[in-house]
Design a protein around this nucleic acid. Sequence first.
DNA 1: CTAAGCTCTGACCCAACGTCAGGGTCAAGA
DNA 2: TCTTGACCCTGACGTTGGGTCAGAGCTTAG
Lengths: 252, 252
Amino acid sequence: MTTYTISQAAQASGISVRTLHHYDAIQLLVPSRRSDNGYRRYTEADLNRLADILFYRALGFSLKQIDRVLKDQTDHRVTLLREQKQRIDEHIARLQAMREQLVINLEQEENTMKTKDMFNALNGFDPDQYEEEVQQRWGGTDAYKESAQRTKHYDKEDWARYQRDADALNQNMATLIQNGYAATSDEAVAVVEQMRQLIDTWFYPCSRAMHAQLGEMYVMDERFSASYDNLQPGLARFIMQATAANLAKNGE
Amino acid sequence: MTTYTISQAAQASGISVRTLHHYDAIQLLVPSRRSDNGYRRYTEADLNRLADILFYRALGFSLKQIDRVLKDQTDHRVTLLREQKQRIDEHIARLQAMREQLVINLEQEENTMKTKDMFNALNGFDPDQYEEEVQQRWGGTDAYKESAQRTKHYDKEDWARYQRDADALNQNMATLIQNGYAATSDEAVAVVEQMRQLIDTWFYPCSRAMHAQLGEMYVMDERFSASYDNLQPGLARFIMQATAANLAKNGE
DNA sequence: CTAAGCTCTGACCCAACGTCAGGGTCAAGA
DNA sequence: TCTTGACCCTGACGTTGGGTCAGAGCTTAG
């Protein structure tokens, strides 16, 4: 009778030696013989059983279940198969629910990403990946071109530095709102002027008139205003009014 | 500031206390405070983080991944979500392949079940569940009716007893084949006569002529002969020949 | 004062192996 | 004959996400 060593058995069935050790340990597949030196010897019958095991394993049965299935001669098997199908169907249903949620989430994230990118395009972030919308809406403007030129050479730290400064200014503005300052107050105008200068230094020449236009955009586009108002309700509109006041008080 | 005990936090979010212990242990959710006696106190912020954790858990992220996702502010998140969707899609595909295999297998098993049931209908097993084919092919015969009548009152032990006797006779017959006896030998005929009597006592009056017919059926229908030949190659044909010999030697 | 109902930490358990570690066996080549 | 390399063995720990005690402390109501 021809027998196989453990590595032969493993290779023949495409599993690891460790797996066969495991199946032996849990008595799922005990090789029929051992050679004198204690090596496992697998017979053809053993390999057949192994094939059955792997078959049911591929169907998602647990090793414990497989043991039962192979003991149970044919009768109860149909029930077990049906139960397993049931389990798999439920599992699939669960995963499909997850998938749906993920898709919904991705759409949301992508929307806010787009919004951010539109903003970033005007402020200079790399719009390469979202060319469609950004290019269509802003691609023709001089500001866009200048911004795209300059920012090409910025690195991570540059971005982080800018982000920090911008966040600080937004935070200042939010504080003003909380303390009851008007958008036309000198304090608000001072902050918005700093905002303008920040854009000016980092991205493109931004006049007060242009900044006022930008402020309007913040309000018009819900996706912008949402992200601002997230920080502080009414912030988008407040900034818009401040840009206008800045233009009125200090000229172009 | 209102805080929550561990059991309150658990109940509020529908998870176990042990789970919160675990999340604390792996630093996924460390409660902001402990009270003087060492009890965990969860703040609202903690519960918010917990909600996020459970949200991503529901999407199939591992706890380790969740930790990263919650650290990573928004940017890398889209990538992670996309990767997760990818994993889930693959998982679904695998499960659907399993499902297909299971369905195919179930169809096969159901076919062999039907065969067995046809046999059982003539030998008396409850054919209720497979009425279609069994009824169509055998429903009109007297033997079927008689069998159906009698077996209605058999219980599990009756069936087991019958099964044991039948198995023993089949085994006897197999042994005769192995030892080179002819189907027409007195020994084979003796066994087949016992088989006939078994049917006679358990199910319906079965003459030798009828038994010969039955024997023919064993051979004709591949589904029958396969299950007999499984026990011993050539067994189905051997029994058929023996039933014929029995009829010839001993009359109707 | 005691029992009930919380809480704590520590520790073992599950499934299906992967991955060493430490140590034998065997055949071929120097 | 000795060594090298390719196999083989057992034993044991790690992984994931908690479940399930066990032993012990705190607080509160009866």
